[in-house]
């Protein structure tokens, strides 16, 4: 209510002055009187503190010695059991901890009990005086004036141009961070394709053995890689795109959209294992609810509905791999995925 006195037009934009807050305040009584410590009054107490500090430093010495025991006696090169390793690690840690805490606590105890504990007062000074600031501005003005940059716009403008351009090569230098040597178009094309192709067998991860349709019983889940993955160039890159989860459910319970009727083999379906959110492997399959869950951000996909997103942050369904059986009864891909696998990106479309 008393605030309105600040509101005059003359004072607009200015800040409250220190003195108008200071009125009607309690006066500063100054620092409270100093209370001497036990050690200040009693020399025996001081002596006791001295012994305590020395004891703490001795503990530190013992800690360091203990470290050497831990290093040479408890530790050895070669195979150690976990129990031995745990004991050695704990001993190294405790040795170091006592060595360090002994010094630290000792010094602080010394400072607290034996060094003077009178609080001192130091005055603050202005960071820099008005005059210094004015002098500095004058110097800078003089320097600018002597360069003549204001009078010679041709020099100034070409310099600005040169400086603006000069860093650009440094940015372009990083073009070859991409070590593939391919054009952007080729790379984006490559992202759309995986090792899956017509007739490529589905094999177990990591053994690489092919899977028969009859092996896949209701409720089971196979982690699948394409046949020949281990011989692929850039094996991990290919694996990062091609991993597939193979499951079997009752075909009656599946809602199959048009065009995908023959993508499964008697209820055996294959879906990309790479989450369409940010790419974690979605491998948590619940056989009764038919849910697939990503352990990283909990996107949940419904296998009965062609892996549509039913919960969590993922933005689109998991790509399905069309499969069939070959003449030997092994599961094979009909083709590559019909859309890019993994997280969405600008060029995905």
């Amino acid at each position: 209510m008393g605030d309105h006195s600040h509101g005059s037009p003359e004072e607009s934009g200015t800040v409250a002055k220190a003195d108008d807050v200071a009125q009607d305040r309690f006066p500063d009584p100054g620092l409270p009187p100093h209370r001497p410590r036990l050690a200040d009054r009693d020399p025996r107490a001081a002596k006791r503190h001295e012994r305590q500090v020395a004891l703490l430093f001795t503990i530190s010495i013992i800690g360091t010695l203990f470290f050497f025991v831990a290093y040479f006696v408890l530790g050895r090169l070669g195979e150690m059991t976990f129990a031995e390793l745990r004991v050695q690690n704990a001993a190294l840690g405790l040795g170091t901890a006592f060595a360090m805490l002994g010094i630290g606590v000792g010094i602080v105890h010394w400072a607290k009990t034996l060094m003077p504990d009178h609080e001192l007062v130091e005055q603050r000074h202005e960071i820099s005086s008005e005059k210094d600031r004015q002098d500095a501005v004058d110097i800078i003005d003089t320097v600018i004036e002597e360069t003549g940059i204001k009078r010679r716009p041709l020099i100034r403008n070409t310099l600005i141009g040169a400086i603006a351009l000069a860093p650009i090569p440094a940015i372009f230098m990083f073009r070859d961070l991409d070590r593939t040597g391919k054009t952007a178009h080729q790379m984006i094309e490559q992202m759309r394709h995986t090792l899956w192709d017509t007739g490529v067998r589905l094999t177990r991860d990591p053994s690489g053995t092919p899977i028969k349709a009859s092996d896949v019983q209701l409720g089971s889940a196979f982690h699948v890689i394409p046949e020949g993955l281990e011989n692929a160039e850039n094996m991990l890159n290919e694996k990062a795109k091609a991993v597939v989860l193979l499951m079997r459910m009752d075909p009656q319970e599946m809602n199959i959209s048009e065009g995908r009727e023959d993508w499964h083999v008697d209820g055996i379906v294959a879906y990309s294992k790479i989450c369409t959110h940010v790419g974690c492997p979605i491998a948590l399959y619940e056989q009764h609810t038919h849910h697939l869950l990503c352990p990283c951000h909990q996107s949940t996909f419904d296998l009965a509905n062609e892996c549509k997103v039913i919960f969590g942050p993922a933005g689109h369904a998991l790509p399905q791999l069309p499969i069939t059986v070959d003449a030997d009864g092994y599961l094979v891909a009909q083709s590559d995925f019909h859309e890019p696998v993994g997280p969405s990106y600008w060029e995905r479309g």
Partner: peptide, 13 residues
């Protein structure tokens, strides 16, 4: 056997 919601890992898997 794949109890509850755990998938079955039969002997061929």
């Amino acid at each position: 056997t794949g109890p509850q919601n755990m998938p079955v890992f039969n002997d061929s898997n």
